[in-house]
C-alpha cells in the first residue's frame, strides 16, 4: 500500500493534500513526550556542574523534538496497524488526514534537526545518545521487535530510558553511575507499566495482530511477569541508595513508592479478572506507574540539590 491510508471513510481530499498543523503536532505523540521530557530534565538538573539556562532549554527542546521525531516515524510505519485499533484509529494517518510521505519527511527532518542542534548547543555525546535513542525506537522497537516478539517492550523499553542519560551528558559531557542507574530504573519500569495497559486493551492488540504478551502468552503469564519485573525494578530503584549515589530524601521516597508499586503489582499478579472493563487493579497500577516515575525522578533532583 503506497501512501494510501486505510480508513477511507473519514478521508477527505483536502485532508490528504494539506494536513492541518495540529495533525503534525499529534504525530509527535505529545502525551508520551511529557514523561520523556520530564525524565530528561531531571537527568539534566541532577547532573553535577553548570549549564547556561539557554543551553539547558535547548537540550530539553532537543530531547522533546527527538521524541517527537521517533513518535512520527513510529506512526508513519504503523499507519495500517493503527487503523485496526480503536485506541489509535483516529491518529492523522489512519484517519486519512495526512499524506504518508509528509509524515516520513516530518519525522526524518525533525530527528536530524534535533540531533544536530543538540550537538551544536550542548555536546556531541548527548547528541549521539539522542540519535541512538531515536534509531533504537524506530528501527529496533517499531520495525524489528514489535511485530515479532512478545518481549518487544522489554528490549524496546530501552528507547524510553535514554532521556536521563541525554540530560546528564548535556551538562557533564560524560555518563556516570547515577544516570545509568536511572536508565535501568526506567528500563525495568516499562514492562509492568506497559503490560498493565496491555491487559485491559488486549483485544485491540489482538485485532491488530501485534504479539503483545497477554495476546501470545495469556493473562496469567503476563501477570506473573509483571510481578517479576516489578521485583527487578525495585532493585533498580534502590540501587542509587545502596551505591551511595543519592541521599535519604531519594532513599525514603523510593522505598515508600516502590513498596506501594509492589503492592499494586502483586494485586495484579493474583487478580484473575477477565473482563477488561472490570480490571480495576490493572488500571490502578497503570495510572500509579506514571505518577511513580514522576515522583521518583523529582526526588532524585531534590536529593541531589540538598545533599550534593
Amino acid at each position: 500500500m503506497t501512501g494510501v491510508i486505510v480508513n477511507q471513510t473519514s478521508q477527505t481530499a483536502s485532508g490528504a493534500v494539506c494536513a492541518h498543523w495540529r495533525d503534525f503536532l499529534a504525530l509527535t505523540k505529545p502525551r508520551v513526550m511529557t514523561l520523556v521530557v520530564f525524565t530528561g530534565l531531571c537527568g539534566l538538573l541532577a547532573a553535577p556542574g553548570h549549564i547556561h539556562p539557554v543551553l539547558a532549554f535547548t537540550a530539553i527542546l532537543c530531547i522533546a523534538l527527538g521524541a517527537g521525531a521517533a513518535g512520527a516515524l513510529n506512526q508513519w510505519h504503523e499507519a495500517e496497524i493503527d487503523a485496526l485499533m480503536k485506541r489509535t484509529a483516529n491518529r492523522p494517518l489512519p484517519a486519512g488526514r495526512m499524506d504518508r510521505q509528509a509524515a516520513l519527511h516530518f519525522g526524518v527532518g525533525l530527528g536530524v534537526f534535533s540531533v544536530l542542534l543538540l550537538g551544536l548547543a550542548a555536546n556531541w555525546l548527548a547528541a549521539a545518545i539522542l540519535a541512538v535513542s531515536i534509531l533504537f525506537y524506530v528501527l529496533v522497537y517499531t520495525v524489528w521487535l514489535k511485530p515479532r516478539t512478545a518481549q518487544n517492550i522489554v528490549i524496546g523499553g530501552a528507547a524510553g530510558a535514554f532521556p536521563p542519560l541525554i540530560g546528564w551528558a548535556a551538562v557533564t559531557g560524560d555518563v556516570s553511575a547515577l544516570p545509568i542507574a536511572l536508565f535501568c530504573l526506567i528500563f525495568f519500569w516499562t514492562p509492568p507499566h506497559f503490560w498493565s495497559l496491555a491487559l485491559f486493551v488486549k483485544t485491540d492488540y489482538a485485532n491488530a495482530g501485534i504479539p503483545m504478551l497477554p495476546v501470545v502468552a495469556g493473562e496469567v503469564t503476563t501477570r506473573r511477569q509483571i510481578w517479576g519485573y516489578t521485583a527487578i525494578m525495585a532493585a533498580a530503584a534502590m540501587a542509587p541508595v545502596l551505591l551511595r549515589l543519592t541521599g535519604p530524601i531519594y532513599g525514603t521516597t523510593a522505598l515508600l513508592l516502590t513498596a506501594l508499586f509492589a503492592v499494586l503489582a502483586f494485586r495484579v499478579s493474583v487478580n484473575r479478572e477477565r473482563d477488561p472493563e472490570r480490571m480495576l487493579a490493572e488500571r490502578r497500577l497503570f495510572k500509579f506507574s506514571i505518577l511513580y516515575l514522576f515522583i521518583i525522578f523529582g526526588a532524585v533532583v531534590v536529593d541531589r540539590w540538598v545533599y550534593a
Partner: peptide, 16 residues
C-alpha cells in the same frame, strides 16, 4: 477539487 475542499485547503495552508 470541489470549492468547499479548496477553501479548506487554503485555510489549512494559511494556518500552517
Amino acid at each position: 477539487l470541489p470549492p468547499r475542499d479548496q477553501d479548506q485547503i487554503r485555510a489549512r495552508q494559511r494556518g500552517r
